[in-house]
Computed example of a mutant assay.
Amino acid sequence: MSEPLSPAVPVRKRRRPPRPEAASEQPLAGQWFIGTVSADESGALVVQSGSLRLPATRAASCLLAPAAGDSVACLRAPPRDTWVLAVLQRDEGTPQVLRCDGDMRLEVRDGTLALDAARIELRTEVLDASARRSTLATDSADVVARQLSLVASRIKMVGALLSSVVDRVEHFGKSYLRHTDGMDKVSATHVEVQAQQLMRLEGEHALINGRELVKARGAQIHFG
């Protein structure tokens, strides 16, 4: 007689041991929380969340500088790093300050950058502006400077009134041409006009008035 068949025994597959590098592929753990910004005695950034009071660092992407009393979103990473990622809420009246450490460039490609505000202030040690074409339209403009230099190949001014007050004015040019439809008057203590070749005065009426002395000197003097 044949021996009875034994029941089939399931074959168990051996599990491969995890690769040694699998543990290193896991992302670092972090803890999200919400807190309130305060500052310590040295002025460093501190976040209060519940009973925890943690020193924090503003993340590079958080351009809005946290202020005391702000509600902020934070990330706590081991071992002791706490980052402020965003300002969630701020009390009314607190200034909005965008802050960046180091060089910063705002770049807009194939578009227009527009600034709309009731008042715009620029404060800097050096201001450099470069443009192929500039247009300034304003009802009133004031320029105050200790020294102002203007260099241009062509300058054109059109206006109803030009008024200037300076201690000394100097003009140097190859040619100077002036047209006046009305009165052209010069008032000074001493007026001197010099010409190397020719000086010509012409008018329908010419009046020369010397209260004490009228003197003409030349190799030849012609009247008439």
Rank of each mutant, 00 (worst) to 15 (best):
L115S: 12
A56Q: 04
P55R: 01
V97N: 00
L28F: 11
V169W: 12
V158W: 04
R58W: 06
V143S: 06
S140I: 03
L161G: 09
V151F: 11
A29D: 11
A8H: 07
S187T: 12
R19P: 08
Q147M: 00
A114E: 15
A137D: 15
R146M: 10
I34G: 01
A8D: 10
P4R: 05
S175L: 10
A129F: 15
T82K: 01
Q147W: 00
S51I: 09
L198H: 11
Q147Y: 12
D142Y: 10
P18G: 02
K215P: 00
C74M: 07
G50H: 04
A44Y: 10
T82F: 09
P20G: 04
P55L: 02
R146C: 08
L45D: 07
E121T: 15
A65E: 13
V166I: 06
P18L: 09
Q26S: 01
V214Q: 04
L198K: 06
V191H: 08
C100H: 13
E41R: 03
S24P: 05
G43A: 07
G35W: 13
V87S: 05
V108N: 04
T180C: 11
G203E: 11
L113K: 00
A206G: 07
D139P: 09
R154H: 15
R14Q: 12
S149P: 02
A152H: 06
R132H: 13
G218R: 01
E3M: 04
E107P: 00
S61Y: 08
S149R: 02
L85V: 12
G159H: 08
L127I: 03
H190Y: 11
V214D: 04
G50D: 12
T82W: 02
R105D: 12
S51P: 14
R168L: 12
S6E: 14
Q147R: 05
L45P: 09
S163D: 14
V46D: 09
A77I: 15
L136I: 09
L63M: 06
Q31D: 13
P27G: 04
V165S: 13
D167C: 00
G173V: 08
A137Q: 15
L177V: 10
M104W: 15
D81Q: 11
A118S: 10
S187P: 02
T57S: 11
D40G: 02
E170P: 01
I120Q: 06
T135Y: 09
L136S: 10
G111T: 00
A145W: 01
A195G: 14
A219C: 00
L136D: 09
P78C: 04
S2L: 13
G93N: 04
V169R: 01
L85N: 04
R105G: 11
S6K: 06
A160N: 11
F172W: 06
C62A: 14
P4A: 05
R58N: 01
M1E: 07
G35V: 07
V166C: 12
R19K: 07
R19G: 14
G93I: 01
R200T: 14
G210E: 12
R53K: 06
G173Y: 08
T189N: 05
A67G: 14
G69D: 10
V165P: 00
T36L: 09
I155C: 07
I120P: 05
D116R: 07
F33L: 15
P27R: 02
D184L: 07
M157Y: 10
I155F: 15
A44N: 13
R90D: 12
